[in-house]
Design a binder for these strands. Structure first.
Lengths: 192, 192
DNA sequence: ACTCGAAGTGGAGTCGTCCTCCACTTGCTG
DNA sequence: CAGCAAGTGGAGGACGACTCCACTTCGAGT
């Protein structure tokens, strides 16, 4: 999943992963203008290791973004195994909020990357959409979710979270909005 | 024109103007990520003076942008006085290319400013549109330019220059494109 | 014409970040 | 388990942002 083109030595791979994890966390928390030295420190590796793996800041931002998406889409199978589909969808949405938070912190840098011709955006968008589809389908089969909606619509509706005003109780507002959306997809009322 | 809200001492105003001029030039040539110290040096003033006038980089970028637009729109009257309107339009277009070049170097920073709620964009867009309108009208009255087009359309068409691929012979391509546009507005063919 | 307080100046200095370099450590292969 | 290629970390040089303050200059008032 996180295996880069040329396979690395085991310890090197571990360090690389630690870097991506640290970057994801710090970028989400404080935006992508953070000092790269701090990312290395937070990952518990030297700066040199960071620069060897990610020669430019953008390389690191992109890696963090990809990992974020991979993690969120990878969670679908596990959630479906442990919960009835409607609950799985709800849990998944909660995660999605976190993803959006992360992406928000990164959005400026991301736009720059996208404009520079790299097509990660199409990639990841597709992945997210598939994740949605899988959850919806499972719910429909189980009879707990409506069958007359399509995944892309739901996905797009979820995107509206991005349009909320930027500050203050944003996170709560977003969570409520997504919760509402799931309820709309359920048969019957949610417990109060 | 460039008089700030609170009037400055004569020498201070001169320095401020020098700074804006230097910034316009350097931003256009090398983008807005340039070292601010270099701008001060190029303007022949100390860094402190720069920071006193423009506390943040954005303040300076905005000032440079405004001055660029003011200069370009301010040129209309002079051109119309010295040339028949169709020629004036052509000359003006040439200047416009330079303006776009400048703006291109600044475009990233500008978008950031625009997104941060500042409404210079609307302002300057309006000013540019007026400039176009004035030139067109003069040509129509003189009978050398077509009367069945409206200024906003021409303005918008001109914006297409922004969409050209970013590199290489861009400047020449842009110039040709604009030249073509003017020819289309003229009655009769241009000399070969 | 001159004085003098306020306004303005510049550049040296501090601080934080980027990025490289290389002596050392570690994983892996035979 | 030996040897070497792969990988490491962190000190340090370079550079940019921004501040501080002793000094200069302007221009209003007389």
């Amino acid at each position: 999943m996180t295996t880069p083109p040329k396979s690395l030595r085991a310890d090197a791979q571990r360090n690389r992963d630690k870097l991506v994890a640290a970057a994801s966390e710090l970028f989400a928390r404080s935006g992508t203008d953070i000092a790269l030295d701090a990312v290395a420190a937070h990952a518990g590796v030297g700066v040199a290791t960071l620069y060897r793996n990610f020669p430019t800041r953008d390389d690191l931002v992109e890696a963090a973004y990809r990992s974020e998406v991979a993690q969120i889409t990878g969670a679908v199978a596990g959630l479906l195994a442990e919960h009835p589909p409607d609950v799985a969808l709800e849990r998944w949405m909660e995660r999605y909020v976190d993803y959006v938070v992360a992406k928000r912190g990164m959005s400026d840098a991301l736009r720059a990357i996208i404009e520079s011709g790299n097509d990660i955006y199409a990639d990841t968008r597709g992945q997210l959409q598939e994740a949605f589809a899988a959850l919806l389908e499972a719910g429909v089969e189980a009879g707990t979710l409506r069958s007359d909606v399509n995944a892309e619509d739901v996905f797009r509706a979820t995107g509206s979270v991005f349009l909320l005003p930027q500050q203050d109780g944003w996170r709560e507002q977003a969570a409520r909005l997504l919760g509402l959306l799931v309820d709309g997809l359920r048969y019957g009322r949610p417990a109060p």
